[in-house]
């Protein structure tokens, strides 16, 4: 009897905590976004500034995610399939961006490419802009999403060993053939998992992008930055309407993540 009571109390307490910190904030975004009606909602998310922000967010992810996929595959191949000294240092360095504050991620690119930075004068002479322009936003996003794909693939490919690839090589397969026919199919769910997480962070990044963007409307405003501008202008309904698009992205991300996790268990990739 008392253990039954304890069970209900523990479940209730856990759910109350999650409700306050997860479910209510999520519901709040949707409710506030629709507060002024569906027409105002649609107007907010389809305004020219919002459309520009959405396009820039998609463009940033379309560059940063594939770049980190190529890197992640290369890093996992080198680390999982070969032995070399300094490997554990390399793995730690790959994780480094996770422990750096997003604000500092933005700052370091200002120090390299900004007007007072290493390459600033040279870039100005050649009429190139990185900071307060799209390249800076892409670079800062690449930094904060750097480890996602690699850290999914490295343990996975390490666990799978090199026997299958060696067999393919003995039978005369070339390097790329081995990779595309053996390795890639073996890790496809893990790769997709990393891509999903990488993409969510790339589209949602705020701090790092905020430092390098300069907040130029219609030019260097990503969707999260657009939300901030609307909010600071007290256009709360519009801010929450645009925020609800990002909340939707988060829910789709969690749904896909959940589905891929089940696949990974089925395929023994986890």
């Amino acid at each position: 009897m008392s253990s039954r009571f304890a069970r209900f109390a523990l479940i209730g307490l856990a759910l109350a905590f999650l409700a306050v910190f997860l479910f209510v904030p999520l519901a709040f975004v949707l409710v506030e976004g629709l507060k002024k009606g569906v027409v105002a909602y649609l107007a907010a998310v389809s305004s020219p500034d919002a459309m520009d922000a959405i396009l820039l967010t998609l463009l940033t992810a379309a560059i940063a995610v594939p770049a980190n996929v190529v890197f992640g595959i290369a890093a996992a191949w080198a680390i999982a399939k070969f032995r070399f000294p300094g490997k554990s240092v390399l793995v730690t360095l790959i994780d480094l961006p996770f422990s750096v504050s997003p604000v500092i991620a933005g700052l370091i690119y200002v120090l390299v490419f900004g007007m007072q930075g290493w390459l600033g004068p040279w870039l100005a002479d050649h009429d190139l802009k990185v900071i307060f322009a799209v390249p800076g936003i892409v670079l800062a996003t690449m930094f904060v999403t750097f480890p996602f794909v690699a850290r999914e693939l490295i343990p996975l490919m390490q666990a799978q060993g090199i026997e299958q690839e060696e067999a393919a090589t003995v039978l005369g397969a070339g390097g790329w053939q081995t990779f595309f026919r053996i390795t890639l199919p073996n890790v496809k769910w893990g790769l997709l998992y990393g891509v999903i997480l990488c993409n969510a962070r790339a589209m949602g990044e705020f701090g790092a992008v905020s430092v390098v963007s300069g907040h130029i409307r219609g030019a260097t405003n990503t969707l999260p930055l657009h939300v901030e501008i609307l909010y600071n202008e007290y256009q709360f309904a519009a801010a929450f309407a645009c925020a609800s698009l990002l909340a939707l992205l988060a829910l789709v991300t969690l749904g896909l993540k959940f589905a891929v996790e089940r696949r990974m268990v089925q395929h023994g990739e986890h």
Partner: peptide, 24 residues
Amino acid sequence: LVDAMVDLPFALPTAVAGIALAGL
């Protein structure tokens, strides 16, 4: 559902979390 939702803070852009908590 609860299990899947625990990862929401990883997936929700921080600015969205920020304005939601500020509003609440």
